[in-house]
């Protein structure tokens, strides 16, 4: 009999939200989606995470914001964004037409910030909220909420009370025990987890004898962090029963498949999308190709097999 190969099924259910495929553009590398339009139709994506939004507009950090490293990129943008109000009023109506899941990434400096911001943005038409308790580049709040399980649980519980959309919590690899933070967030009511945010690092300008970044440290992303991200994705996936969205150094369809094998429900692509604007489009095609070649009908056949 002729081999009857059907197109592999890439559809992912994430907290009741049906994604066309598991490929989500990561926060901070995709603006609000409009910048990618000259290159491909954003509707092909499983979804995208907005630039980190805060209750009030933020100008972001001054000084150098980027430093390339071997196989990686350090950044210290500092959550530059127009604020939730301007996002909902001016930007969201323009990007709603993309026809893909819009995940609002929300940052904050205080517990009250997070609660108010998540509530505000969850009243809009966004599909999901990604709670960023892992930004290493803000002086107050940010990662401070994501390294201790009790503090993380407290902010998730408070946000969850008024958040009207599924809540995904973005975890920091800088936590001493990311599995403990993950378990605490699940127990506090998180609907999903995403990991990893950038790894805190340091770059030094030896000629000037000072740190490259004004904030001294900055977040490392890119291919260099992939093994760490994969390991953490696997550890967390095995420890919780809510969906885990994996990210960190994904450049190809096979990288995406590796994260799914490590237990990820879906994946996010960040730095690689800065290297080439068409990266997400390519990863979707490569993942399909990989599945066809390996005779994988749906992602559930390989999810968490490692």
């Amino acid at each position: 009999m002729e081999e009857n190969k059907t197109t592999p099924n890439l559809v992912v259910d994430l907290c009741g939200l049906s994604l066309k495929n598991p490929v989500i553009a990561a926060s901070g590398t995709f603006g609000f989606g409009e910048e990618i339009e000259p290159f491909y139709d954003p509707s092909i994506l499983g979804g995208f995470c907005t630039k980190g939004l805060t209750r009030r507009p933020r100008p972001g950090n001054s000084g150098i914001r980027l430093q390339e490293t071997r196989a990686g990129l350090m950044n210290s943008i500092g959550l530059q964004n127009p604020g939730i109000e301007a996002f909902v009023r001016d930007i969201l109506p323009r990007i709603r037409r993309f026809g893909t899941a819009i995940i609002a990434n929300v940052g904050g400096e205080t517990m009250e910030d997070y609660v108010a911001a998540c509530y505000e943005v969850s009243k809009s038409s966004v599909d999901m909220v990604e709670l960023n308790i892992s930004c290493p580049n803000v002086k107050h709040g940010g990662m401070a909420f994501g390294i201790d399980p009790d503090v993380a649980a407290k902010v998730v519980r408070s946000v969850k009370r008024s958040c009207r959309k599924p809540l995904m919590v973005k975890l920091s690899p800088n936590a001493p025990d990311i599995v403990a933070v993950a378990r605490a967030c699940e127990k506090a009511g998180a609907d999903a987890l995403s990991l990893i945010n950038t790894i805190s690092g340091l770059a030094i300008d030896v000629h000037a004898r000072r740190p490259v970044f004004a904030n001294v440290t900055a977040g490392l992303s890119g291919p260099a962090i992939k093994p760490i991200a994969l390991r953490m994705t696997r550890d967390v996936s095995k420890a919780v029963s809510i969906p885990v969205v994996g990210m960190g150094g994904i450049e190809t369809g096979e990288d995406a498949a590796a994260f799914i094998m490590a237990g990820a429900a879906a994946i996010q692509v960040g730095t690689a999308g800065l290297v080439r604007p068409d990266t997400c489009q390519r990863i979707i095609a490569e993942l399909l190709e990989f599945m066809s070649r390996e005779d994988i009908g749906s992602l559930s056949e390989i999810r968490g097999i490692i």
């Binding site: 901070g28 590398t29 995709f30 603006g31 910048e35 990618i36 000259p38 290159f39 630039k51 100008p59 972001g60 001054s62 150098i64 914001r65 980027l66 430093q67 990129l73 950044n75 943008i77 530059q80 730095t271 999308g273 800065l274 604007p277």
Partner: peptide, 26 residues
């Protein structure tokens, strides 16, 4: 300016202007 994406997505290349931080790339 130092840039990563060049298309306005990453906000890595901003400069300070009278109308706030603007992206050098776009």
């Amino acid at each position: 300016a130092r840039m990563a994406c060049g298309i306005g997505a990453c906000l890595g290349c901003t400069i300070n202007t009278r109308s706030g931080n603007r992206r050098v790339c776009v």
